[in-house]
Simulated assay, not measured.
Amino acid sequence: MSVCNVSLQVIPKVPDEMTYPVVDKVIEYIQSTGVKYEVGPMETTMEGELDFLLEIVKKAQEICIEEGASRVASIVKIDYKKEGVTIDEKIKKYRG
């Protein structure tokens, strides 16, 4: 399967002061997987094989619950094409 991009926004149901710490745990997990990723203000975009990235999405839900969320809503976006798609091809021209 080709390289694709998956963007993930987790919205854990926790008290306001716990939102960032829970999201930080998810980002720490993403970092630990070794995938290429970019953190944005609303979501984290990852680059890799679709099946592996979807496993990360699945684990992110579990992390939110383990960190105290009673529920988690997630927004997932997938950009896939047969020949592959990279983060750089989409945003390279916007970087200095």
Rank of each mutant, 00 (worst) to 15 (best):
G68K: 09
Y20F: 11
I63S: 02
E62Q: 14
V10G: 01
Y94K: 12
P12G: 08
I63G: 00
E66Q: 15
V6H: 00
I91N: 07
N5K: 15
V76Q: 01
G84F: 10
K36R: 09
V76P: 00
V3W: 03
G40N: 03
I30M: 07
I75W: 07
K90E: 12
L8T: 02
G84I: 10
I56S: 00
M42V: 05
D88P: 01
K77M: 10
G48K: 03
I30T: 06
S7V: 02
K82T: 12
K82L: 13
P15C: 03
I56V: 15
L53F: 06
R71F: 15
G68W: 10
M1V: 14
E66V: 07
G40E: 05
G40V: 03
C4M: 10
V76C: 07
S7F: 01
D51I: 06
M46H: 04
P21C: 11
S70C: 08
E17Y: 15
D88M: 11
E43G: 01
Y29M: 08
P21G: 11
A73H: 12
K93A: 14
P21H: 10
C4K: 10
V85D: 00
G68E: 10
I27T: 12
K59T: 13
C64H: 04
P21M: 11
Y29E: 10
G48V: 06
E43R: 03
K93H: 15
G40R: 02
K58T: 09
G48A: 06
V10L: 09
I78N: 08
Y94Q: 11
Y20K: 08
M42C: 01
A73F: 14
G68V: 11
Y37L: 04
E66C: 06
E49Y: 04
T33H: 06
C64D: 07
P15I: 13
V26I: 09
G34Q: 07
V22P: 00
R95H: 09
P12L: 08
V72G: 06
K82N: 11
V26K: 00
R95F: 13
R71L: 13
V23L: 09
V57I: 07
K92R: 15
S32K: 07
K59G: 04
S70L: 12
Y94H: 14
E47I: 04
K81P: 05
M1C: 10
G40H: 03
R71V: 02
T45N: 02
M42I: 05
K58I: 05
E83P: 00
V6F: 01
K93E: 15
E55D: 14
V10S: 11
I27N: 03
G48Y: 04
G68S: 12
I56D: 00
Y29P: 05
K13Q: 11
T45A: 02
I65Q: 09
G40C: 03
L50T: 09
P41C: 06
K25W: 02
T19Q: 08
K58N: 13
V76S: 03
V76H: 02
V6R: 00
Q9H: 10
E67V: 02
Q9L: 12
G84C: 11
L54R: 03
E66W: 05
P41H: 05
L8K: 02
Y94R: 13
L53C: 05
